[in-house]
């Protein structure tokens, strides 16, 4: 993964994301419990929490994939329900699954999604994104033949195709080896510097702390900690989070 956003791309105009007492219930299980957050444009937020703490639910709601049971989600003070479908243009989402078609090649997968995004110079844009993710050599490979690391890069490429203002990533580091993970975090840090809002979830405290400007800790669906990140004082951060989780 090399360059961040190509210079020809316009600077992102990330929305201000506000959640008000966002709750999601699955039967008697509370996945998210009155989560209230304000995410300013251009923040790099890491959502931490154990498995089942509500990270995926929060990200899926932010990605407009799931409707909350209660509470409100606002983008630039507009309730999400009133936003036109076109608004999805501004969101890029990487989930647990890759959303890739196994029987299509890397190029074909991207071309399909580019068409749905209505990207004008699809071929050219795909070339750019493939270069950014260092996937050019694999353009003709079938998605099912890719390793986990390559698949994740392709998923990232797919989420990045339309140059979204907001990047949502649900545990993107899972299953990646240390160097790949490192490169992905560098790339995300550069997106952040270019002005994109990045929201990433992780269940590993240490790994994802470094590039983030802010940390949100979820514990049983509740926001247990929400504050700025101090990458140079990792020990302190850890202690703080452990205390909050209790």
């Amino acid at each position: 993964m090399t360059l961040p956003a190509s210079p020809r791309q316009p600077a992102p105009t990330s929305p201000r994301i506000v959640t008000r007492k966002l709750s999601k219930y699955f039967g008697r299980f509370t996945a998210l419990d009155e989560a209230t957050l304000t995410i300013e444009p251009g923040e790099f937020v890491v959502v931490l929490g154990r498995n089942g703490a509500g990270k995926t639910t929060l990200l899926r709601i932010l990605g407009l994939l799931q409707q909350p049971s209660r509470g409100e989600l606002l983008f630039d003070d507009q309730p999400v329900a009133s936003l036109p479908v076109r608004f999805r243009q501004r969101i890029g989402f990487v989930g647990h699954e890759t959303f890739l078609y196994d029987e299509l090649t890397v190029q074909e997968n991207l071309l399909f999604y580019a068409r749905l995004y209505g990207i004008a110079n699809a071929e050219q844009r795909i070339g750019e994104v493939l270069a950014e993710m260092a996937l050019e050599a694999r353009a003709g490979s079938f998605a099912r033949h890719l390793s986990r690391g390559l698949k994740q890069r392709l998923a990232l490429a797919r989420a990045w195709l339309h140059h979204p203002d907001v990047l949502l990533l649900d545990e993107p580091a899972t299953g990646l080896d240390a160097p790949t993970r490192e490169r992905m975090h560098d790339w995300l840090a550069r997106c952040h510097r270019a002005g994109h809002t990045v929201i990433l979830s992780s269940h590993e405290l240490r790994e994802s702390l470094r590039p983030a400007t802010r940390i949100v800790l979820l514990e049983q669906g509740r926001v247990a900690f929400d504050g700025p990140n101090h990458p140079d004082r990792q020990e302190e951060m850890q202690a703080l989070l452990v205390a909050a989780a209790r």
Binding site: Y25, G27, R28, F29, T30, Q220
Partner: peptide, 10 residues
């Protein structure tokens, strides 16, 4: 009942 069970977190 589901609502009550959820609030009681059982």
């Amino acid at each position: 009942f589901i609502e009550l069970a959820r609030r009681a977190r059982v």
